[in-house]
Amino acid sequence: YKIYPYDSLIVTNSISVKLPKDVDRTRLERHLSPEEFQEVFGMSIEEFDRLALWKRNDLKKKALLF
């Protein structure tokens, strides 16, 4: 996945969300650098992957990456 800054990946309720063209809309968190991922989620990507799907989705919603 290509890395993008968190600010360019957050999704708000506005209709005209302009995400970069090559971003996987269903896995926005994968486009964060490991350092920024840790900062946003408070855990590593590996720890995040071990969580239940509902928990990952809940965290993504709170981080505006859903």
Rank of each mutant, 00 (worst) to 15 (best):
P34W: 09
R50C: 11
E29R: 00
P5T: 07
S8W: 14
E35W: 09
K21L: 14
L59T: 02
I15R: 14
F37P: 00
F41A: 00
V11P: 06
E35Q: 13
F66D: 08
R50I: 12
L64Q: 12
L19C: 06
L59N: 02
E46D: 13
P34Y: 11
G42Q: 13
Y1G: 08
L53W: 11
P20G: 06
P5R: 04
I15E: 15
L19T: 08
S33Y: 03
N57C: 09
R30P: 01
D24P: 02
V11Q: 14
A52Y: 07
D22V: 04
D22Y: 05
Y1C: 12
L32F: 01
Y1L: 14
K18E: 14
K55V: 13
L65E: 02
L65Q: 01
T12K: 10
M43A: 02
V23K: 01
T26W: 09
V23A: 06
F37E: 00
D24Q: 05
V23I: 09
L19M: 09
I45V: 09
D58R: 09
Y4S: 01
E39G: 10
E36Q: 11
I15N: 15
Q38F: 14
L59K: 05
E36K: 05
S8H: 10
K55E: 15
L65I: 05
L19Y: 15
E46M: 12
S33L: 04
R25G: 07
K2I: 13
H31M: 02
D24S: 05
L9T: 00
Y6N: 00
L28N: 01
E36V: 07
V40K: 06
L32Q: 00
P20D: 06
P34L: 12
D22W: 06
Y6P: 01
S14A: 12
P5K: 05
R56T: 03
H31Y: 09
R27A: 11
A63L: 06
S44Q: 10
T12G: 13
E47A: 12
L28C: 02
G42I: 05
Y6G: 01
I45T: 07
S16I: 10
I45F: 09
L51H: 06
V11W: 08
R25P: 15
R25Y: 09
R27F: 07
R56W: 02
V23P: 02
R25I: 15
D22C: 05
F37W: 03
F66M: 10
N57H: 08
G42N: 13
L53M: 12
F37L: 02
R25Q: 12
L9H: 01
L19N: 05
V11C: 11
W54V: 12
S16E: 14
N57M: 11
Y4M: 04
R27L: 07
W54N: 12
S16A: 12
E46L: 12
I45P: 07
Y6I: 03
L32R: 00
